[in-house]
């Protein structure tokens, strides 16, 4: 058997809305119709540009923009470093790719594979900077939403690096094998205001999403402060090597 999944899912601990990875995404609404130009950054470096046509007549309510698809070696990256053959088949987005969305719809910036570290800046194609109405994932505001998923059990500290007085606390529980296959509960909403996070403390299950609504300029970082490696007596899943599973000695039926 061959297990195939993206290693980054389990090795990247902590999230940053300004440096998106597979476990985090940003949702933004372009309220004004017009042509927009976007730039994808990876670790601060300009990676590619793209265009978004915000059109009242567009039937598209949601434009999914996979930032990992702008990688020049996207196709290779999708399989070479991760070996992924998951159901996240992506189409390679060439520089200059055009997207379309209705002004009442949403643009979703996410990362489908790889190490991430992406940010995106989108602004209207206008000469007047006041009319450019820029959006930058490194500074969320308005109706922007940062969606985060934490897999690694433990206690996290949530911080709005652009403001907010209080830090939030998130506790992600340790997974348990129940009577049925585990599926994460519904997402939890958190408001980001000047006061900090509401609610300020969350108890989540692994894989349960948090939706940070940015009411004020926001850049969320989630940092592991205390890892939870499970109960001390948890069964160790270690390679057992080859071992023949045998029936216990059966007692003779007859004397």
């Amino acid at each position: 058997m061959k297990l195939t999944f993206d290693q980054n899912l389990f090795t990247q601990i902590g999230l940053d809305s300004g440096s998106l990875t597979m476990l985090g995404g940003v949702t933004h609404r372009f309220l004004e119709p017009g042509q927009y130009r976007g730039v994808v950054y990876r670790n601060g470096e300009n990676l590619a540009d793209f265009y978004v046509n915000v059109d009242k007549n567009s039937p598209v309510a949601q434009a999914n923009i996979d930032l990992a698809a702008f990688e020049p070696t996207q196709a290779a990256a999708a399989t070479s470093t991760t070996g992924s053959t998951c159901n996240c088949q992506r189409e390679s987005a060439k520089a200059g790719t055009k997207f379309e969305v209705n002004p009442k719809g949403y643009a979703v910036f996410h990362v489908s594979a790889g190490a991430g570290g992406y940010a995106v800046r989108v602004s209207k194609a206008a000469e007047d900077p006041k009319q450019q109405n820029p959006f930058d994932s490194r500074e969320l505001k308005g109706d922007d939403i940062f969606s985060a998923v934490i897999l690694r059990p433990g206690t996290y500290s949530a911080t709005n690096t652009l403001g907010g007085k209080e830090k939030g606390k998130i506790i992600v529980g340790y997974p348990k094998i129940g009577k049925t296959a585990y599926r994460p509960p519904s997402p939890v909403k958190v408001a980001c205001s000047e006061r900090g996070f509401e609610p300020g403390k969350l108890e989540l299950q692994p894989g349960q999403a948090i939706l940070f609504h940015a009411a004020v300029p926001t850049r969320i970082t989630l940092e592991l402060t205390k890892a939870d490696d499970g109960p001390a007596d948890r069964a160790a899943h270690v390679r057992s090597g080859w071992k023949k599973a045998a029936l216990p000695d059966k007692k003779k039926k007859k004397a």
Binding site: L3, G25, S186
Partner: peptide, 20 residues
Amino acid sequence: CLVPDPWNGCLVGFPGFCIG
């Protein structure tokens, strides 16, 4: 759902992993 949308839908799903 990795990135839920505000109306309880799902914008981005956990890509899952496969066993082959």
